[in-house]
């Protein structure tokens, strides 16, 4: 079990943010908590963190191509 917090930039629409969080939580063994007000996302995963990160970024790019996620 690994937990890591990321900074999410360019996700300014709350609607998209909600979608992003829901979609990311559908990944198996992954729990994501998005803090819209701070622009941060806490990812807890049973899988490899780098692999999870890639999968989450892919989801983010699909929902909001201009948004970026970086390690905090």
């Amino acid at each position: 079990m690994t937990t890591k917090t990321y900074k999410v930039d360019g996700l300014d629409c709350a609607h998209c943010a909600g979608k992003f969080e829901t979609e990311a939580n559908k990944l198996e063994g992954v729990e994501c908590k998005l803090n819209f007000a701070l622009g941060t996302m806490k990812i807890t995963t049973e899988r490899d963190i780098a692999e999870t990160e890639k999968a989450v970024v892919r989801i983010l790019k699909r929902i909001e191509p201009d948004a970026r996620m970086s390690a905090k």
Binding site: C13, A14, H15, G18, N35, F36, A37, L38
Partner: peptide, 18 residues
């Protein structure tokens, strides 16, 4: 579009915590 609500209410509460 429900944007006014969807954005401003969480911002209010989190801002309140801050």
């Amino acid at each position: 579009c429900p944007c006014a609500l969807v954005i401003s209410v969480p911002l209010t509460f989190f801002g309140g915590i801050g």
